[in-house]
């Protein structure tokens, strides 16, 4: 049985699994890759944790972004506003 799975390349290393996990964040995986990952997760807690780490990483980055977007104390400085207006005036639009 195990031999057959290896022949089908359904059994993959953690190194290969980690690449597939990263790709899974960027779009739907091809069917064989999904199967490989499913099998791998059955036998590997480390890669399950790695998968979780990448999802937390991705959520956290969006958290940083949202904190800035929603922070109304962050404002375009008066200097910058004046500079932008005078730059546009000088170009006579």
């Amino acid at each position: 049985m195990a031999e057959r799975l290896i022949k089908l390349k359904l059994i993959i290393t953690c190194k290969d699994a980690s690449k597939i996990i990263s790709q899974s964040l960027d779009g739907p995986l091809p069917w064989p890759d999904r199967m490989k990952l499913k099998f791998h997760f059955l036998i590997c807690d480390s890669c399950i944790r790695f998968n979780r780490q990448l999802h937390i990483l991705s959520d956290a980055v969006k958290g940083i972004r949202n904190n800035i977007e929603n922070n109304s104390t962050i404002q375009l400085s008066l200097n910058a506003k004046t500079r932008i207006i005078s730059m546009i005036d000088s170009k006579n639009y």
Partner: peptide
């Protein structure tokens, strides 16, 4: 302006 600035800064 402030909204766009925050959007860009983020």
């Amino acid at each position: 302006g402030d909204y766009l600035y925050r959007f860009a800064l983020a």
